[in-house]
Structures are given as C-alpha cells and as structure tokens.
Amino acid sequence: MEEFFRSIERQAFRIALFACNNREDALDLVQDSMCSFISKYSRKAESEWKPLFYKILQNKIRDLHRKRSVRSYWQVWTGGASDEDDTDPLERLEDKKGLNPEQETQNMQALEKLQDELKQLSLKQQQVFLLRAWEGLSISETAVAMGCSEGAIKSHYSRATERLKKKLGKYWP
C-alpha cells in the first residue's frame, strides 16, 4: 500500500492542486482520499487501485467545489471576502534542479502556459485530460475514476486536447 501511495502521491497532489488552486486544500484532498481508499478498496486487486483511488479523489474534488460554491454564494450575500488562495502555485516552487537558466525559464514558461490553459478548461475536461494524458489511465479506467461513460470520456478528452493544442501550439512547436 505504501509503495502504491508513493507512486501516485505527487501526481495526486498536482492533480488536486490543478483542480482547487489551493495548496492546503489539495493536501487535505489527497489525505482524505488516501484514508477512504484504504478503508474501502485496500482488499481489491492492485491492478484496480489506481482508477479507484482517482475515483475517490475526483469525488472529493467535486465535494470541495460544491462547498466552495455554497460558501461563495453566502459570501456574496454577507459581503465577506473570499479566502481562496489566489497565489500561483508556481510561485512557491523553488529551484533545486541545477538546470541552466535558459532551460529553466523555458520549462517554467511551458508549465505556466499549460497551467493557465488547463485552468481554462472545464473541471471535467481538465481532470479527464490529466488522468488520460498524464496518469496514463485507459478510457475505461478514466470512466471509472470520473464516474462517466466511456463515450463521455472520449468526448471530454478530445475537446480538451484540441483546445490545448490550439492554445499551446505556438509555444510548443
């Protein structure tokens, strides 16, 4: 189990961070997902662990978004300020790779642009794209994780890819 968590923990954190744009919330989401995963699915076959873990994470992300919309609704009425962390997660990254400045700048720009464009996608398109393109889940596994049909996954993925290609094409020739 620990080995499995080690293999996915950083991606899971990144995916959660893309979805909620808040480091603390992303950490909470990952921890809650790990707790739920152990109690619910630890007896399942290891080959099923990844999609099942991401299924839990996606549910937690959806719950968080629902809570945020309720909170923002009340903040509009009560006039309170949003406590959402608007700072860019990239700003917290520190240089420890020892890359040359030119490479480092290119990587940072690419990631920044990708992140901006991923944020522009709908939550479903964004998460389907990350699970398929980054985590390498198959269409059926992504369908399990997202709780959608395989047709919907294909559609979300294709739209997300088209949009990202269109927007990032000039940055990534």
């Binding site: 950083r10 954190f13 990144r14 790990m34 520190e94 420890k96 990631l111 990350l130």
Partner: peptide, 25 residues
C-alpha cells in the same frame, strides 16, 4: 512538462505529502 512540475515541488510540500500519507495509513 507535468513530470517536470513534480520534480519542482518544494521540500516542504514533499515532506507534507509524506507526513499525510503516513497519517492516513
């Protein structure tokens, strides 16, 4: 690019992820 972003996670975040993993377990 996304893999690169994992390598760029700061030590504090990585330690936090490790801590919460053991806590969850």
């Amino acid at each position: 690019t996304l893999d690169q972003s994992l390598n760029d996670l700061d030590n504090g975040t990585l330690a936090e992820i490790r801590r919460l993993k053991y806590r969850a377990m």
